Structure formats: C-alpha cells, structure tokens
Simulated scan of single mutants.
Amino acid sequence: MGGLSGWSGSMLTLLLIYMQTGGGSGNTAAPPDCSFIPNGASGVYTIQPAGFRYSFQAYCEMGANGVWTVIQKRTGGAVAFDREWAAYKNGFGFASWDHWLGLEKISVMTKSKRWKLRVDLWDFEGGSAYAEYDDFRVGDESTNYRLSVGRYRGTAGDAIRGAYPGINQIGFGFSTFDRDNDGCDPCLFGDILVGKCTEYERGGWWYSKCGSASLNGDWHPKGQHIGWSTGLHWGTWNGPAPYSAKATRMMITPM
C-alpha cells in the first residue's frame, strides 16, 4: 500500500507541474497574433489573442512587407459565405484555404493595439490590386461589430468610403441575412427596392446602403463575373459594371 501511495503522490506532483507549465487545456504559450512568429514560413499557426478564451488556428502570411494575420480568404465557390450571424461571429471555413476568421476573434485582437488592414484583390485577367487602411478596428458584439478604419493607401481605390456619395461603411455594424444593420429602410437602386443588402448582395458585411465594398457575396466563375449584384465586389476597382473578383484576401498586422 505504501508503494501505491507513493506512486499516486508522484503522479499528482507530475500533473501539477504539467498544468503549471501550460500543458493543460488553458495553454497560454500560443502567441497573440502572427507578428509574434519570427522568421517562419507562411502557413497555419496556433494563436491566442490577449483576453480571448482559447487558442485557435490562423493563417500567417510572411512577406517582405511584414507578418500578417489573415482574417478572410476567397479563391472559389466551394466554401459557402452566405451564412448566419453566429457563423460570422465564430468563423468558418479552413485556415489553410477559404475562410472567415470570425468577428469575435477580430474584435478582441483589434482592441489591444493599433492595426493595419490590407485587402488584396485578383482579377480573371491576371491583374491584382490592394487597399491598405491604418487604424483598423472592429467593435464588440454590443456595437454589432462596428467597422472603423483610418487613412487609405493603395491601387484598388477606397471602396470602404465608397465609390458613390452616402455609402461610407465606416461606423456601420455588420449585417447577415438574420441580423440587419445596413441602414436600408428600404434602399432604392434604379427601379429596384432593397430592404436588406444581404438579400441583394448576399453574404455578411459592413453594409451601408448597400456600399461599394463587399467581399463575402457569391463567388462567380470566369465569364459570369461581370454585372451581378452579388459577388466579391470592390466598387472602386475594375468598373464601371460590377466586377466579381477571382480571389480576395483580408489580413491585419500591428502598426
């Protein structure tokens, strides 16, 4: 019995050491974002932003212009983006492929410091463009994950502030088909009356009557990518007819 008691005590001691050094489910060893992963190759890493309840996987893009945490990626139509509020809140898809990281994760990350947002766009003709914004931030759920961005630079145009008057998306909450925060009551586009931008453009986004940026709508293949109200749209790029991008990526890095 004494041997068994001693063995039990040893196992308890080892268990306590394991938990104290981060071996349990509350592991705090994961970096808070991709910028804490130096000299690595682009790929999927485990991160845990300060104040977030658990660690999760994110794609880290290591490039000449910095280390970025990818929050959205589209390369085709296999992953559906026409989803409900809960899906956009928590995230969906595959970190190594097409995905949306999750509004709650993005909100917690962007509370801690100043961030830069980069939007990359690729067209079907072999071209590309980008838009960068200083001071990117997403509010918490009580604000409907309200969007805030600062100064723009890039080659794609400032579609968040809008290609047309009155559709600035800054300060608007996020909308999905089951949670409407788009400011349309209703909106009129020519002879089309729109009650919800998610019905007109599809997907979840920071819609504003309905706005000229929307990268989470339906993906359209080559030959069917021009002229749709739905699509991966950046209205200040490849117009004047609505142009649905071949691929998109959104990613953030500390300023």
Rank of each mutant, 00 (worst) to 15 (best):
I71G: 00
K116P: 00
A41Q: 08
D33I: 11
G91T: 08
F52S: 15
S42D: 05
M109F: 09
E199D: 09
A86V: 14
Y152D: 04
V70G: 00
R118Y: 03
R146C: 07
V79D: 02
Y88R: 00
T110M: 04
A159C: 02
G3W: 03
G231Y: 12
M255Q: 15
V67A: 04
D158R: 06
W205P: 15
G91K: 04
W122Q: 02
E84W: 08
I71R: 05
N238M: 03
F36Q: 12
R118H: 08
Y130C: 06
M250W: 12
P49Y: 09
H99C: 08
N65E: 13
R53H: 10
S25R: 13
D185W: 10
E199P: 08
K89C: 06
Y88L: 00
R53G: 13
I160Y: 01
D82E: 14
G127P: 02
Q48G: 03
E132K: 06
T110D: 03
F52H: 15
L4R: 10
P242N: 14
W237H: 04
C187R: 03
R114S: 11
A87M: 13
M11K: 11
W122D: 04
R153V: 00
G76L: 04
G126D: 07
K89S: 07
E141C: 05
T248N: 01
S25N: 12
A58R: 06
G24Q: 08
W68I: 12
N144H: 14
R83K: 10
A245W: 03
N90L: 05
M1H: 14
G203S: 02
G157E: 11
G183M: 05
G63Q: 04
I252Q: 00
R114D: 15
C60I: 14
G171S: 07
A247F: 03
G217A: 03
I160N: 01
T21R: 02
W228V: 04
C60M: 04
A245T: 13
K105W: 05
G43H: 00
H220A: 10
D180E: 05
V149H: 08
Q72C: 02
S229F: 08
A64W: 10
K113M: 09
L4W: 07
F177L: 07
S55E: 07
Y145G: 06
V138C: 07
V149Q: 06
